[in-house]
Design a protein around this nucleic acid. Structure first.
Length: 271
DNA sequence: AACGCGCCCTGTCCGC
DNA sequence: TGCGGACAGGGCGCGT
């Protein structure tokens, strides 16, 4: 479900709404969501701690609890919600955190592909190092993208989604960025010229930045921390538009399957 | 080492 | 109305 813009929106919401709150109780309703520890160990790690700050790394929500980090990955259908005391509980509730002032931080997940863990800072930093470039930071340059792409023969669309190189781009924004860069998603990553790498670099940044401004894309499940839908759905140029007219040239948008995932593109505009 | 595939799980939609 | 199959914002572990 959530790619960089959706996770970033949730992170900003939760930081604004819950920073400074203490987690007074932890109820794990779906233990399979907790990885690397028992539900009980997870509860002991989190309970009584204060939320110092909420940040994002790749598609992970990272909650600073002091010596430990509460790391949340939403998978496909995960939601992190801050609700007021007395609000009705959502279905498919996975973990309920009781905050000071009787508000709740809720993890909800229909498919349960998401996961939560509470780990020491050092362990988190180790995982952090294995992740690729943050596309919106200065470290991500056209040259860096081109150098990495030259080493891989996989289709550039599949390549973009691999979190070991560039993070945060998932199935929606990979298609959208390649459309904006006018690059055929089937091209091997190592076939991109430097000029094309520059175009792709700019397109990735542009589409992610615009999507954050519109608070993400809701296809079905995505909601921000207050339960609201994202506004970027109407601005998608190719994703989920198979058969519809390309907004640039009028040619019908194609849907193909790459690595088991749908790719949408314009055969006329993207070469 | 890099790559492709199957799998985790539930819900929805579409065709017959 | 019911049923089977395809598909859905992700990521991991396996075999080659």
């Amino acid at each position: 479900m959530p790619e960089l813009p959706e996770v970033e929106t949730i992170v900003r919401d939760v930081d604004r709404l819950a920073r400074g709150a203490t987690i007074q109780s932890v109820d794990v309703l779906r233990p399979d969501l907790i990885v690397g520890a028992t539900a009980d160990a997870f509860r002991r790690c989190v309970e009584g701690r204060t939320i110092r700050r909420v940040t994002r790394r790749a598609k992970n929500i990272v909650i600073d609890l002091g010596a430990d980090r509460l790391v949340v990955n939403l998978g496909m259908t995960g939601r992190l919600l801050v609700t007021d005391a007395g609000a009705p509980l959502p279905s498919h509730l996975g973990v309920r955190f009781g905050l000071t002032d009787r508000r709740l931080l809720l993890y909800q997940d229909v498919r349960r592909f998401g996961r939560l863990q509470c780990i020491p800072v050092g362990e988190w930093e180790e995982r952090d190092r294995a992740l690729g470039f943050e596309p919106l930071l200065d470290e991500f340059t056209p040259g860096a993208l081109h150098d990495l792409a030259r080493r891989s023969r996989v289709a550039v669309k599949t390549w973009l989604m691999d979190q070991r190189r560039v993070v945060g781009v998932g199935n929606i924004y990979a298609s959208e960025a390649l459309f904006r860069a006018a690059i055929d998603p089937r091209r091997p990553a190592n076939s991109l010229s430097f000029a094309e790498s520059e175009r792709l670099h700019r397109a990735v940044r542009e589409v992610l930045t615009e999507a954050i401004e519109f608070r993400g894309t809701t296809l079905l499940d995505y909601r921000d921390a207050s339960g609201q839908e994202g506004g970027f759905s109407r601005r998608l140029r190719v994703y989920d538009r198979a058969g519809d007219a390309c907004r640039a040239c009028g040619h019908p948008i194609e849907r193909i399957v790459q690595g088991g995932r749908s790719t949408f593109y314009c055969v006329r505009c993207q070469r």
